[in-house]
Nucleic acid binder design. Structure first.
Length: 1050
RNA sequence: GGGCGCGUAGCUCAGUUGGUUAGAGCGCGUCUCUGAUAAGGACGAAGUCCCUGGUUCGAGUCCAGGCGCGCCCA
């Protein structure tokens, strides 16, 4: 016997019960154990930082990461799922710095790298418990216990192995690069990090003049000539080493009316400096190329005499969109500057310390922070007559994400991985990966791979995997790369237990009388996450076979923002190590935005707490809401609590109530499924049973194909649309079959069909909504079936049940019913009022045959005494023809425009002959002869005026709305039954309770009730129906006639 | 500045190889059904399919250019 169920169950509470059951019975472990030996389905989990709580983006990705492993497990695959944690990097360092009150790298060194790193270690896992709770509450099955951490020694040793592989391939090199630099954190940042916090700021914009030393331009005799440069970073002027012009840009030498000096400015920029042409005189005009080689007097004296410096260079990057068209070059502080100066053999100078304060060499501003020095520098320029113009500019400028201080660009010593020779291999390997949606892989990612730049992998930080390179203190070119702990122990003669910086930096290597110390940088943590396929299993030091057998992964899933993150580093490292892609299938999810379309923000509080949402609607509702959204196709999703509620109302509640309905009547009748697997009747006689089984099979086919193609949205919507057909057609149409008190075959078939359908639907939906399906399945299962729905095999497509003709027949029936309902509304005849007849008309024999078979369904649904099916539609509708554009368009081309009116003008006789298969000759306005056949036109029907007729496509329905006294009496009886049923419900009677009814009504109505008393009693399970007065009578309206009823249990 | 994506009803979104009158849900209004349902059904109001141009007999759909938004990069 099934357990009684509560229609008003709280899904959130139900889910808690399921979680306890899974935990207690170790269902996840069982689901794995059961598939041990099955073909593995390999899933890699991207490691999150545990420095914050999980948000909707994590819940979305986490749900996607749960559906496919569950699905594949049910398909028989062995799917291990281990969680991972990203432990290193700036997020955690920033937290530790706050905690210890340390401002930057020097402060960290002062307090001790060991203290700092141990602080990091102690904080890394601070939110692990919360993560675990949330992930678990969402119903995601993943192994936390054996999860990997990027700070584990085993993980870090594998990182060294990976590094050494690249080293031996000659891919690791050291270079200068211009990078965004945070002086607060004393570290260069990746461009990725630098781009995440642009702010609009006001900066000075100064135009400075530099005296030309060794060139006389025509017409400048007796004048001092200056080249004008423009910059928004005055602090870079002390490090100025050159000026750059565009080779093809036109420049003018003008006599400045104010100063009577000669200035060199781009011709196009003159108007920016002079309001009127009268303010200057053009002395000479030339191309930028002619200016190259001029020397000028350094603005500041600090680097006077620097080799090859203080001359005019040229390069194509110079534009005339702002400034003077001449760009000042400080090679330490700009990528283009660096490149241009390097080509001119000018060594950079970088007079800033780690905090970006000026070094003593810049005597006037020594110790001053560069940005703060701007004002003093401008003042000094003014004093020395070098400032031509001063203004401010508001522009978007990158700021440090962690500290909100401005970033500067400066030259940094860095370690690089050579990538630029790998483009073809990367693209080839990416072509072996299936992306969902495809454009992310085929366009976005492929384009990125095609232009991938060498990868800066070093970070001048503390808490991370160390770059395992030891450098000869005497000769920086002499290096040793260490690839394992054993290697380091052998080289150093010391025992090594931990690979973090504070354990490793003190280890020195002596070889052949030379001393080697480690390079101080740590690795970019993307290097670690990209190495996770190997490092999570301590490859190749352990688990060689396991890793090699489980590579590449069958499936990964992350957000669109990982295109250049994890997706890239995985693909890059696997290509470099094994020349293979790291994953075969990847689902990319979009961003989850707040309801207002903006990013979710804790400060703005523009989104509901996930826990509140789960507690109100349940994790299933949240999961399905996310899974059925465009967010699973890499599109943005505006998340709204209302949408979650909607999913609960329209999917979970109907599913739950279908279950309640079934269980309620099965308990009344004591129906139990036969032992063994759930099974439908062998040969269902009722067309509803065959139909719902056919629909179910089609749905199984659809959902399987959707999931096999990683299309979650399609999968989710297919099973929900089936649910709609199940509840609002199959169950509604079948209700009476369950109420009937005699246990005949039809009733048994109904129970067996619905039981099988619900069980199968639960199995089908289990990967999407694991809780409610588990609850329902557990109540419906037989002893022979697995204890949990998640231990079941995924439903197979039952081709024997598939009947497309039947599906079409039922679709036609629904269409006829829908038309009939419309007519009732038009005629203001509610469904409870029986009518004499409905006429279903179609000229197509196949349609008529279908409708005839289903006539009883239509009659019942429309509450008519008789349903007639006939062929003659012309008494009800008038026919007209339209061209079938799909057929005629390609045939006629431009003549289509002439054919349209000719076809519209066809008479009903013409149409009739076409429909009898005859062809029809037309002459178009331009004399073209055209022969039409039936397929060339579409026949349209218009309801004739004044009749109760409705048409849709091939089907026309007419309703006889005339009422007889008999029909009215029946209508009243049905109204009475309806009111009585409502009263039963209000009085909380059980569906099986027998009752006695006492009523009082006006004479006419009383007579009707008396006449229909047998029917009324049968419907309401009444043992008696007597007229008279008694206490506690309920007043009701029966078609606007007042009446009173009293009900009591028998 | 570049790459990619998105732009359809008040809101969230469907819309097949170009084809006839552009759909659904939510919300709103008027009805209705119901002994599983917090549900369902009917009708109604609500559209410059972002704009411009092109290809075509025919464009929400294809092409080009632009505008707006997002992600990634520079």
């Amino acid at each position: 016997m099934f357990d009684a169920v509560d229609t008003n169950a709280s899904f959130a509470k139900m889910e808690e019960v399921v979680l306890a059951y899974w935990e207690h019975e170790q269902i996840f472990a069982q689901s794995l154990e059961q598939r041990r030996g099955g073909q593995p389905y390999v899933f890699y989990d991207g490691p999150p930082f545990a420095t914050g709580l999980p948000h909707y983006g994590h819940l979305l990705a986490g749900t996607i990461k749960d559906v496919f492993p569950r699905y594949q497990t049910m398909r028989g695959r062995y799917v291990e799922r281990t969680f991972g944690w990203d432990c290193h990097g700036l997020p955690i360092e920033a937290l530790a710095q706050d905690k210890l009150g340390l401002a930057g790298a020097p402060a960290i060194r002062d307090c001790g790298v060991d203290v700092f790193n141990e602080q990091c270690r102690s904080m890394v896992l601070r939110y692990v418990k919360e993560w675990q709770q949330t992930v678990n509450r969402m119903g995601r099955w993943v192994d936390f216990e054996h999860g990997y951490k990027t700070m584990d020694s085993t993980f870090m040793e594998s990182i060294w192995w990976v590094f050494k592989q690249l080293w031996e391939q000659g891919r690791i090199y050291r270079a200068h690069r211009i990078m965004p630099y945070s002086w607060k954190l004393n570290t260069p940042l990746s461009n990725f990090e630098a781009n995440s916090n642009y702010q609009d700021v006001q900066d000075p914009a100064v135009t400075v003049r530099m005296k030309i030393l060794d060139r006389d331009f025509p017409g400048c005799a007796g004048l001092t000539t200056y080249v004008l440069i423009w910059t928004t970073t005055p602090w870079t002027l002390p490090a100025n080493l050159a000026a750059c012009v565009g080779p093809d840009i036109r420049y003018c030498v003008v006599r400045d009316g104010d100063s009577n000096d000669a200035y060199i400015v781009a011709k196009e920029r003159l108007s920016a400096y002079y309001k009127h042409e009268s303010e200057y005189t053009v002395l000479h005009e030339c191309a930028g190329a002619e200016l190259v080689g001029c020397h000028y007097e350094p603005i500041f004296p600090y680097f006077a005499g620097h080799a090859n410096a203080f001359c005019i260079l040229s390069d194509g990057y110079v534009t005339t969109t702002d400034g003077t068209g001449i760009v000042h070059q400080a090679p330490a502080y700009g990528e283009d500057d660096y490149r241009v100066c390097r080509a001119a053999n000018i060594e950079l100078v970088d007079p800033l310390d780690d905090d970006a304060n000026f070094l003593p060499v810049v005597a006037d501003f020594a110790g001053v922070n560069c940005k703060e020095a701007d004002k003093a520098i401008i003042r000094m320029l003014k004093q020395h007559g070098k400032l031509v113009q001063q203004s401010t500019i508001v522009h978007s400028y990158p700021f440090c994400e962690r500290t909100d201080t401005p970033l500067i660009y400066r030259a940094i010593d860095a370690w690089y991985v050579k990538v630029e020779d790998l483009h073809e291999r990367l693209i080839k390997n990416n072509a072996q990966t299936r992306w969902m949606p495809d454009f992310v892989g085929e366009k976005r990612f492929a384009n990125w791979l095609a232009e991938a730049k060498d990868w800066n992998i070093s970070r001048n930080r503390f808490w991370g995997s160390c770059i395992p390179v030891w450098i000869n203190v005497e000769d920086p070119a002499d290096t040793i790369c260490v690839g394992s702990i054993a290697e380091l122990e052998a080289l150093s003669g010391q025992k090594v237990s931990d690979l973090h910086k504070h354990f490793i930096d003190c280890i020195e290597i002596r070889r052949d009388g030379k001393l080697y110390r480690r390079t101080p940088e740590v690795l970019d943590c993307w290097f670690e996450s990209g190495s996770m396929p190997y490092a999570q299993h301590h490859y190749p030091f352990a688990n060689r076979e396991k890793v090699e057998g489980a590579f590449p992964a069958d499936f990964i899933a992350e957000g669109l923002d990982q295109t250049r993150g994890w997706f890239y580093t995985l693909m890059l490292i696997s290509t470099m190590l094994f020349d293979k892609p790291a994953f075969k299938n990847v689902v990319v999810n979009g961003l989850v935005l707040a309801e207002d379309g903006r990013k979710m923000s804790k400060r703005l509080k523009n989104y509901p707490d996930p826990r509140t949402v789960i507690d109100s609607y349940g994790a299933d509702a949240l999961r399905l809401c996310l899974l059925a959204s465009p967010a699973v196709r890499a599109e943005d999703l505006r998340f709204s609590e209302v949408a979650v509620r909607e999913v609960m109302r329209t999917v979970l509640i109907p599913l739950w109530n279908a279950h309640c309905f079934f269980v309620t009547y099965a308990r009344v009748d004591g129906w139990v499924p036969p032992a063994g697997q759930a099974a439908p009747p062998a040969a269902p006689e009722n067309v509803l049973d065959s139909w719902v089984l056919s629909r179910l099979s089609a749905t199984v086919q659809d959902v399987r194909s959707a999931l096999d193609n990683y299309d979650l949205q399609r999968g989710a919507t297919r099973f929900t649309s089936f649910l709609d057909d199940l509840t609002n057609w199959y169950i509604r149409r079948s209700r009476r079959r369950f109420w009937k008190s005699d246990n005949d075959t039809d009733k048994g078939d109904a129970y067996a069909t619905l039981h099988y359908t619900l069980v199968t639907l639960c199995q089908l939906a289990a990967p999407f909504t694991p809780f409610i399906t588990e609850t329902i399945y557990r109540n419906l299962r037989t002893d022979a079936m697995p204890a949990s729905v998640h231990l079941c095999d995924y439903p197979e497509v039952q081709t024997a049940y598939l009947d497309t003709a039947l599906n079409e027949r039922m679709a036609r029936t629904m269409s006829a019913v829908s038309l009939g309902r419309f007519l009732r509304t038009q005629a203001s005849q509610k469904i409870r009022q029986p009518l004499a007849s409905a006429v279903l008309v179609s000229a197509k024999a196949a349609v008529r045959a279908d409708l005839e078979q289903m006539a009883s369904v239509v009659a019942e649904e429309l509450n008519v005494k008789a349903v007639l099916v006939q062929a003659d539609e012309e008494s009800l509708v008038s026919l007209s023809a339209k061209p079938n554009l799909k057929r005629l368009g390609p045939k006629l081309g431009p003549k289509m425009k002439l054919a349209m009116p000719a076809i519209a003008a066809l008479s009903s006789a013409d149409i009739a002959s076409l429909r009898q298969g005859e062809s029809l000759a037309l002459t178009l306005a331009d004399g073209t002869a055209l022969t039409l056949s039936e397929d060339d036109v579409l026949i349209q029907r218009t309801e004739k005026e004044g009749m109760c007729v409705a048409n849709e496509g091939d089907i026309t329905v007419a309703l006889d709305t005339r009422l007889t006294a008999e029909l009215i009496q029946e209508g009243n009886a049905r109204e009475v039954v309806s009111k009585l049923q409502n009263l039963r419900k209000e009085l909380h009677f059980e569906v099986t309770d027998r009752i006695h009814i006492c009523y009082s009504a006006p004479v006419a109505l009383s007579r009707a009730i008396e006449a229909e008393s047998a029917y009324i009693c049968a419907e309401t399970l009444a043992l008696s129906l007597t007229a008279g007065d008694c206490a506690d009578m309920h007043a009701v309206d029966i078609n606007e006639v007042p009446a009173r009823f009293h009900l009591r249990k028998a």
